[in-house]
């Protein structure tokens, strides 16, 4: 694996979405926390990209920065988020006015939140919450919008009679299915799913994941899928990005991540979970805690916890480079110390 290296993949794939050098700061009373630090990531049409990492590493912040749904203390301080439109450069979402952004939201990028109980409006019927998004973005009559709502329900395996229900009258699994139906209402090209199944029990979780896979194959949308559960991710994703302290430290095919993780953090993360086949269940975990984002350590952010850290790791920040069929940001694989 020590073969020569090309420069880092800052040039993202030309595809559906390309996040380039995105930086998000939280202005807190203690100082500025850089929750997303120069992240570049691309999504191809129709692929499922998994995003994993410990709690607080910036997964949600990164995902919510794309449709610009972050609130007050969060400010996007750098980078571009281009949404491809088939030809040319696409549009930079960060440059859109509020009204232009409103039109892009849901039509191109829809979101499924962690807990549908909280994400659905408790005082509106499910139907109203489906119909309003259809009628806001498309010139549709009320009748037709209702029919479409019923069809969407069928798509996610829910009887149309449930449309008249209020969210509290549905089970957790049904609510999450409804949330998915709402997300698919406008046939978006990209679905952001931020831990969509953590609030559910394991059986329902599996069902929902299978459903998403099935729908994705049928409708061809791309998914940015966030979870803590790396075994789940391996199952569903085409590619996986591993985040640590605001950076993407490794990006590769799901199989590569599973079979041959390169970054010491990825290895630690995989070791923290029982493997899929359940034969090898040592839960070593990673000692220590993620760094304080207001005052991160110099050099590699993982160095203080890294079993293979050496002097260079504590002094110099590794850049992300392509090594074989993966991208990784680690001095173990990085270019030699003196580069022209």
């Amino acid at each position: 694996m020590a073969e020569p290296l090309t420069a880092g993949t800052t040039a993202p794939p030309t595809g559906l979405l390309s996040i380039e050098n995105l930086t998000v700061d939280f202005h807190t009373p203690r100082g500025t926390a850089r929750a997303v630090d120069g992240v570049s990531l691309g999504l191809f049409p129709g692929e499922i990209l998994g995003l994993a990492g410990e709690s607080g590493c910036g997964k949600s912040t990164l995902a919510m920065a794309v449709p610009r749904l972050l609130r007050d203390p969060a400010v996007i301080t750098g980078g571009r988020v281009r949404l491809g439109d088939g030809d040319g450069d696409g549009v930079d979402l960060l440059g859109l006015s509020d009204e232009e952004l409103r039109r892009v939201r849901w039509r191109d990028i829809a979101v499924v939140f962690q807990n549908a109980m909280n994400a659905l409006n408790p005082v509106l019927r499910v139907e109203a919450q489906l119909v309003d998004v259809i009628r806001t973005h498309e010139r549709t009559g009320r009748r037709e919008a209702r029919e479409r709502a019923a069809r969407l329900c069928g798509l996610v395996g829910i009887g149309a009679d449930r449309l008249r229900a209020y969210p509290h009258e549905l089970s957790g699994g049904m609510r999450q299915r409804i949330a998915i139906a709402i997300a698919l209402a406008l046939r978006p090209r990209l679905l952001i799913m931020d831990e969509p199944t953590t609030a559910l029990d394991v059986v329902v979780q599996r069902e929902i994941i299978a459903e998403v896979r099935r729908l994705q194959e049928r409708l061809g949308f791309a998914v940015l899928f966030i979870t803590h559960d790396i075994s789940l991710l391996v199952e569903i994703s085409d590619r996986i990005a591993i985040m640590y302290a605001g950076e993407v430290v490794e990006l590769a095919d799901a199989r590569t991540i599973l079979d041959d993780p390169a970054h010491p953090y990825t290895r630690g993360l995989l070791a923290s979970f029982p493997t899929l086949h359940g034969d090898d269940t040592r839960l070593t975990g990673i000692p220590g805690a993620p760094p304080d984002l207001v005052d991160p350590p110099p050099g590699c952010r993982f160095a203080p916890r890294c079993p293979s850290a050496h002097d260079r790791c504590r002094a110099e920040r590794p850049v992300r480079v392509t090594v074989g069929d993966r991208d990784v940001a680690c001095h173990l694989y990085g270019p030699a110390e003196v580069t022209p």
Binding site: P67, L69, L101, R102, R103, V104, R105, W106, R107, A110, V111, F113, Q114, N115, N118, A119, L120, N121, P122, V123, L124, A128, D132, V133, T136, H137, I182
Partner: peptide, 26 residues
């Protein structure tokens, strides 16, 4: 602060609908 408000905005609904049907009604 509720998720359903973030979702309403993510849905690209017009401001008055977010304010009225989602925020004020609750």
């Amino acid at each position: 602060d509720e998720d359903y408000l973030t979702m309403a905005e993510a849905k690209g609904l017009r401001t008055w609908r977010v304010m009225g049907h989602y925020a004020a009604r609750n």
